[in-house]
């Protein structure tokens, strides 16, 4: 839960500029909502690497890993388990 709160909080704060958790559902697509664009996705990766110490490989840059809060949480958990 803490992981989800952190990731969701980051997206809310930095892309939707709000602290209202109802502004973003965990399954919402960041692409469909227009939340990240081609530079925004780099910011997300930078955040993951700095905040959670994971390293995002090129081949991991797929929507299944990065395109919603739920996918991001699962991705970070998998990376940590593998580390």
């Amino acid at each position: 839960m803490e992981l989800e709160q952190k990731i969701k909080g980051y997206i809310l704060e930095n892309y939707l500029f709000t602290d209202d958790p109802s502004a973003l559902a965990s399954d919402d697509s960041l692409l469909d909502r227009g939340i990240v664009d081609s530079t925004g996705i780099l910011e997300v990766i930078m955040f993951l690497e700095e905040e959670f110490g994971v390293s995002v490989e090129d081949e991991e840059m797929v929507p299944e890993n990065l395109d919603s809060v739920r996918n991001l949480v699962a991705f970070v958990q998998r990376k940590r388990a593998a580390a």
Partner: peptide, 17 residues
């Protein structure tokens, strides 16, 4: 050129952007 970091599987993102 900055999209080059998305080589490999980045195609999905290209398609979406």
């Amino acid at each position: 050129p900055y999209l080059n970091i998305t080589r490999g599987q980045g195609l999905e993102y290209l398609k979406r952007f």
